[in-house]
Nucleic acid binder design. Structure first.
Lengths: 67, 67
DNA sequence: CGATTTTATACCTGAACGGGTATATTTCAA
DNA sequence: TTGAAATATACCCGTTCAGGTATAAAATCG
């Protein structure tokens, strides 16, 4: 699942604002915004810190078949 | 699977040197080294460029149970 | 509707990523 | 063993990430 969607989804499910999530993860509010805005150049460790709040982490997965 | 192991594994399977991989991915040799050395602060987009050579990409996955 | 909260956009800046390169160190074949 | 290739470590430095902040837009709610 796409990262930005996943974060936004989880955040909504837990009824958190972007600020809530930023505070809990110990990252900047701007980072959360860029994360949900599909910025691709984010640092992996920061992304993982946020994902871990939702019991997840980044892993290599096979690409969907594109023919 | 852990990212660093995965990259190194795939690279060996395809019999590529770190330089080969760096050149094909269009990233620096140093980046490949840090990637295989488990550096956590790498940029997501660069990691994905390398992973795509092996038909993979970073995705959020559930953390292994830790009790 | 208006007021408050939440989200989005823009700017400034310190910190650090990542490229390149030089120099060990290790690996491996002849 | 020896020499070349591959990998590891260390440095300089331009680019840019990410924090903070201010402002604007959008969403939420009484």
């Amino acid at each position: 699942m796409k990262l930005s969607k996943f974060i936004k989804q989880q955040r909504k499910d837990y009824k958190l604002t972007q600020r809530d999530l930023a505070d809990r993860a110990g990252v900047g509010l701007r980072f959360i915004r860029e994360l949900e805005a599909e910025k691709l150049t984010l640092r992996m460790d920061k992304v993982n810190i946020v994902l871990e709040l939702f019991g997840h982490q980044l892993e290599p997965r096979p690409l969907p078949k594109s023919e």
